[in-house]
Nucleic acid binder design. Structure first.
Length: 291
DNA sequence: CACTTGACCTGTCCGC
DNA sequence: TGCGGACAGGTCAAGT
């Protein structure tokens, strides 16, 4: 599930791989994945040169010299994979989760003037890419509502506490998954950070002290930074821009580790429960619901 | 308004 | 072996 660290990893890869390249051809297989009028897409993208790759929350923004921007949300199973001479046959075969492209999950294919390709693959079709005039991107509804970037230094514990208190009456896991509270947390980093802060995910926000919330923000920053260093988490089918896995899941303390020992309590097994409608991983010894 | 649940999809896994 | 159903989770719409 691409969350902030996965999307940031894709952004960094694309920055290295496609900046300066010029689009020669665009094809898409379904309006759901790329709802713009195909004629307009061609007229605004073909001949355009890639000038920047930006990220905000879990959204990627690919800027073109035509003053248009491709905004991409990978949702659960989306992938943006580059194929060109640079990475052909590179790396260990086990690093890659995908083979020949396009394949049956390919929704959009960008062909560059040098013969390289960028594929937007999405098995479940929840993801999308949309073309906007660059000047209109910041007015996208989601971007006007989304909360601060957790990894920015100006997002302090005080700022986090002030924002999350608006959700005092819900569970802390639902609150940190709420993208209007802060940007980029999904199921993996929610569970990992709550374990790190020793807070039970079903605890109501109002029962948690400011100091504990400050600790939680520190854990969110910690696990996200660690994951970016590891190239993200490949739980099911996430891959980076080169089609390769991330390795954070190897460092995960609770996520997908039900039945295995808690790193703090070797005698206690991690349990999987349901909180905020999501599969949720906890150590029943570390994470006790506040009274 | 605050909060929770269901819908959107498809591949995989489990039990019968 | 085949098949039905549960499950995976980011976000928005609908419901309470």
């Amino acid at each position: 599930m691409p969350e902030l660290p996965e999307v940031e990893t894709v952004r960094r890869g694309l920055e290295r791989l496609i900046i300066g390249k010029t689009i020669a051809r665009v094809t898409s297989d379904t309006p759901k994945s790329f709802p713009n009028d195909p004629i307009e897409v061609r007229s605004f993208l073909v001949g355009a040169r890639c000038v920047a790759i930006r990220r905000r929350a879990k959204l990627l923004m690919i800027d073109w010299s035509s003053q248009y921007t491709l905004v991409v949300h990978l949702k659960m199973t989306g992938q943006l994979v580059y194929r060109g001479d640079e990475n052909f046959g590179a790396g260990h075969p086990n690093d890659s989760l995908i083979g020949e492209l396009p394949d049956r999950s390919t929704r959009v294919e960008l062909t560059f003037s040098d013969g390289a390709h960028l594929y937007f693959n999405d098995q479940r079709k929840f993801g999308w890419m949309k073309l906007y005039p660059t000047s209109e991107v910041e007015a996208i509804d989601f971007l006007t509502r989304v909360g601060p970037e957790p990894l920015e230094d100006i997002f302090t514990p005080e700022a986090f506490v002030a924002r999350i208190r608006r959700r005092n009456n819900t569970t802390v896991k639902a609150a940190i998954l709420d993208q209007t509270v802060l940007a980029g947390v999904g199921n993996i980093y929610a569970d990992e950070s709550l374990w790190g802060a020793k807070i039970h995910p079903a605890t109501r926000v109002r029962e948690i002290t400011d100091a504990q919330l400050g600790c939680l923000l520190g854990q969110i920053k910690y696990v996200m930074n660690l994951s970016i260093e590891a190239g993200g988490s490949t739980d099911r089918n996430y891959v980076n821009a080169e089609g390769k896995r991330g390795s954070y899941i190897d460092f995960a303390r609770v996520f997908r580790r039900e039945g295995q020992p808690c790193p703090r309590h070797p005698e206690v097994m991690i349990e999987k429960i349901r909180v905020a409608g999501r599969g949720t991983h906890i150590c029943p010894a570390c994470q006790v619901v506040a009274a």
